[in-house]
Design a protein around this nucleic acid. Structure first.
Length: 462
DNA sequence: GGGCCCGCAGGG
DNA sequence: CCCTGCGGGCCC
């Protein structure tokens, strides 16, 4: 039974779209994330306490907490990560051996063949996740940390849990009571090394548990021609209906982050920031952004690998080092339409939009390409498509777009170690400093209010 | 320049 | 399988 299958908010006139009544304000609840009013009586599970009412997330936005704006991410590497990468790259090892070596590395000990397990006989596989569980867990929620931050004393917390702690005025480590430096309290940085380690460890667990369980199949198109080509079926001329040519890089389609030299057998240099291609098909061949038409590459239960900026959404803003991006969907693509600029229904955090939200939550890096079609941006290439490096999604939310329907919104902030492609042109000859988070919040506040009076930024920030 | 249409690629 | 998708060429 699905008695709660249909959950609808109030419409623009304040009428509940479910019972059609127009409830007085005191009988509505406003989502703290998307600022949409909902009729309390029609909610499947209304909040029970005052506090939960104040921080209430509507059915569209709930599922998990959204992220407060914060935290520029540190891009430093570590020996541990380098070692794991070395194992990954070792062609003499099987997947199983790689998994074992990763485990040994992270656990700091060598597994013996038989039983090294601490009694209890729960599961006999001692996976690296178990080790992570005991040593790296967030001391607040006792889970592997989301968007982990690490104190100087070496303890890890979810960004959100940490900020909550700081928000309560605490300035000592919740685990060992060491002092937390003011800088970290005011601007915690996501430990991107730990993000990678946790992700690899999870991969390793799935390798051990289900060896041949390939979540995402690899495209076997290494044998295709060097350039995009026209198939028998695609009888129209040119690249309009072309199929992709060979993929030159060896990263799997679900690879996050930069494409490095070891995955570039053709040139042995990797995909460099600033690299340009003729069009999206050629861009695809170098793995920077695989979809031919779609703007987001990702999987809703996994994360997003890349996005393309092409000026397709008018509310988007491009500031180079950071930009506001709109999710996909909400458009009527029936018939033969592929791109229809008109919104005709709300976007939700599902499919590709959810993939971006996962990347936001986990702190995964997202590759960004810009297209010459991004006419309203001074950061767009003159022609073709350009790889602009790696960004992180600092925040995501929903708002009513300029066309009157809800859209998913994302704040991307550049976090690449290489200078951006535009640093030597009219934008100045040195990298622009990352804007302070407060400045960003202000900028978004202004722009989102300007476009959508119903959007209340302040109440959306936890 | 804008509308229109097409097949491909991939998620689900 | 079906549906979606910030391409791209052509026709007017």
């Amino acid at each position: 039974m699905a008695h709660d299958s249909i959950q609808l908010p109030c419409d623009a006139d304040g009428a509940c779209m479910r019972c059609k009544a127009t409830p007085p304000t005191e009988e509505t609840l406003t989502c703290s994330m998307c600022a949409t009013p909902w009729h309390v009586a029609c909610l499947a599970s209304p909040p029970e306490t005052l506090v939960s009412t104040l921080q209430w997330h509507c059915p569209d936005c709930s599922g998990d907490p959204l992220l407060s704006a914060a935290a520029v991410v540190d891009g430093s590497s570590s020996e541990l990560l380098a070692s794991i990468k070395a194992i990954e790259a070792d062609e003499s090892l099987t997947e199983k051996e790689k998994a074992r070596k990763r485990q040994e590395l992270v656990s700091g000990r060598v597994e013996e063949d038989g039983d090294t397990k601490k009694g209890k006989g729960k599961e006999k596989d001692s996976s690296v996740l178990d080790v992570l569980d005991s040593s790296l867990n967030c001391s607040f929620c006792m889970q592997l940390p989301d968007r982990p931050v690490t104190t100087p004393c070496g303890h890890n917390f979810c960004l959100k849990c940490f900020q909550k702690w700081i928000g309560q005025g605490k300035r000592t480590c919740a685990k060992c009571r060491s002092t937390i430096p003011p800088k970290m309290a005011s601007q915690p940085r996501i430990n991107s090394t730990l993000v990678s380690v946790i992700r690899m460890a999870k991969l390793s667990k799935s390798n051990v548990a289900a060896e041949s369980h390939k979540v995402f199949h690899f495209m076997h198109n290494q044998d295709r021609p060097d350039k995009a080509f026209t198939t028998e079926r695609a009888q129209k001329a040119g690249k309009a209906n072309a199929a992709s040519g060979k993929i030159f890089v060896t990263v799997p389609p679900d690879h996050f982050g930069p494409i490095t030299a070891e995955n570039d057998p053709a040139r042995n240099q990797g995909v460099l920031v600033g690299e340009c291609w003729e069009d999206r098909l050629e861009c695809r061949q170098w793995g920077a952004h695989l979809p031919h038409v779609a703007g987001i590459a990702g999987q809703s239960n996994y994360g997003a690998q890349s996005v393309a900026l092409s000026g397709g959404y008018e509310d988007d803003e491009d500031h180079g080092e950071w930009f506001l991006y709109t999710g996909s969907g909400g458009r009527d693509l029936s018939g033969n339409k592929r791109t229809n600029k008109e919104q005709s229904f709300d976007q939700k955090f599902e499919k590709m939009n959810e993939a971006l939200r996962v990347s936001c939550k986990k702190g995964y890096p997202v590759r960004v390409v810009r297209s010459h079609k991004e006419k309203r941006s001074s950061y767009a290439p003159e022609k073709g498509v350009r790889y602009d490096g790696v960004y992180r999604i600092e925040k995501c939310w929903r708002k009513v777009g300029i066309q009157g329907f809800k859209v998913c919104r994302y704040l991307f902030v550049r976090c690449d170690n290489e200078p951006a492609p535009w640093t030597s042109d009219e934008h100045g000859d040195r990298p622009r400093p990352l804007p302070a988070i407060l400045e960003l919040k202000k900028a978004i506040d202004i722009s989102e209010r300007k476009e959508s009076p119903s959007w209340d930024f302040d109440s959306s920030v936890v």
